[in-house]
Simulated scan of single mutants.
Amino acid sequence: MNTKLITMNSYVLWLGSIFDQKTVMSSKAISPAANNWQVGLINQLSNKGIKVVTLGHTPEPIWPKGKLKMGHKQYKINNKIDCYITDYYNIPFIRKANLIEKYKTLFNLLICKYGLPELVISYNSYDHNSVTAINMQTNFQIPWVCIVADMPTKQPDITKQNEYLSNSDGNIYLSWAMYQNSKSINKFHLDGGIVDDHLERSELSNSQKHKKSILYAGSLTRWGGIDELLEAYKLISDDNLELWICGPGENDKVLNAATSNKSIKYFGFVTKSELTQICKKASLFVNPRPAYVIGNESNFPSKLFEYLQHMKPIISTKTPGLSPDYETILITPENDSAKAIASKITEVLDWDEDKTNQHIEKTLKFINQNKTWDIQSGRLIKWLIAKFNINSNNPDSVT
């Protein structure tokens, strides 16, 4: 390829796979939380004049559990984000190298169509993302910023990721602890945001006020703390209380609990609109993620943003991934034990209407001052302009 014939254009190349809700719901390998986070940020970057083109692939359990070969796609998200999905062979010992090669091939096609990007942003430092980004640095002097959403917990993956991150020109961390501990010269903390028009203050009916419910929405793995929550629920004596659980995956403890106790409702993996309706009816939300589980120091509990937009009380353990900002609006148990979680749930369920309304107003103020995607994307764009001199086609919208 003759690189002298390629021009630099005003757009950001995003190395990350994003999909519409229908695709997310039909896949066991796509993370709903990661998808929602990326779409939320990219939408706001687009609204503020930053053109984003995405390059990714469709995740799939490795063959023979998954398909042998994954196909390529091209589509738009919300009629404004150009998305390109590469094909690849989903075969053990071959997939990793094939993805790296396929990303390189698709990148070359994209720069023929769009020109060279001003900046490359990758969602995590997976091999295919990092090798592609480093090649762009080396061959085209394009800066690379890596979003660190998750960190590996075992060697040699930890060493490899640290090596990749040392090559990036800047790093964005979702986890507060990871941000604080990072030795990167150019680092930025951004844990997420809420779309302004998704804020909704739900009014409970008289029947809902008498029949109270606790909602847990998220992963059913040990990282999410679902086991601790089930134990906590056993310690609460209230015939008018229900525990509602939503989330992908399979957990025998959850299934057995829902079968043996009629007050435990397991909804399974629900759509975004279905989750919104369930959130409207819930009395309070819970994030029981235990701090002691390895890996929870390096990620952020993204379910909090789903909870926050409804402005109801959130009982949450305190994990290193949470920034100090949240101390003002999260209701934190004394520790991560089931007993402490149960005690705090009981306390909040006893709040009167005035205390509940005060908490709602405090949460609304917190969101409007700190945690909308409009505010967070504006912060990020200012940082990107200062560090990498990228262009915004709508600079007046950056606040």
Rank of each mutant, 00 (worst) to 15 (best):
N240H: 12
S202R: 02
P152L: 03
I245Q: 01
I236E: 05
D169P: 06
H189L: 07
T159E: 13
D169V: 10
C246K: 05
S213L: 01
R201P: 03
L220Q: 08
A217V: 06
S219T: 12
D239S: 07
R201I: 15
S260F: 02
S219L: 07
L255A: 07
V145H: 07
S213G: 06
M178W: 01
F188V: 04
S237Q: 11
R222G: 00
M178G: 14
S263N: 15
W144N: 04
M151H: 14
F188H: 02
A232N: 06
P248M: 00
L241Q: 10
S213A: 13
K154Q: 12
K212Y: 10
D238E: 13
N251V: 08
P152M: 01
D157V: 00
T159V: 00
Y164W: 15
R201D: 05
W176L: 04
A257E: 00
L190R: 07
I236K: 01
H210D: 12
I172G: 08
N240E: 08
C146L: 01
G218K: 05
N206C: 13
T259K: 15
L241R: 02
T259S: 14
Y179I: 06
R201W: 01
D196Y: 05
G225R: 09
P248R: 00
G170T: 01
D197S: 13
L204Q: 13
D157P: 00
K253Q: 09
Q161D: 10
I226R: 06
V148L: 08
H210W: 02
K187D: 02
L190A: 08
S260R: 03
S260C: 05
S166F: 06
D196L: 11
G170A: 13
V148W: 07
N206G: 04
L215M: 05
K262A: 08
W223D: 12
K209L: 15
E228A: 15
N251H: 11
E231Y: 04
D252T: 09
N162R: 10
Y179V: 05
W176S: 04
G193C: 01
P248L: 09
G249M: 02
L199A: 06
W223T: 14
G170V: 03
L243F: 06
K154L: 09
G224D: 12
S166M: 11
I185M: 04
N167R: 14
W244P: 09
P248W: 00
L174W: 00
M178S: 14
T153N: 13
A177L: 10
S263C: 07
G170S: 09
G218H: 06
G218N: 07
E242Q: 12
K262D: 02
N251P: 14
V145K: 03
N240R: 05
S202E: 05
G224M: 04
Q180L: 11
S260M: 02
D150E: 14
K160F: 09
H198G: 00
N186V: 03
C146V: 10
I194P: 09
E231K: 15
N206H: 13
L235Q: 13
S184N: 11
S260Y: 01
N162M: 10
E203Q: 15
L199F: 02
H210N: 12
T221N: 15
E200G: 03
E242P: 01
T159R: 09
W176H: 14
H210M: 13
D169K: 12
I185T: 14
S213D: 04
E163L: 06
A217I: 04
I172D: 09
N167G: 10
I245R: 07
L230D: 04
A232I: 04
T153K: 11
G224I: 11
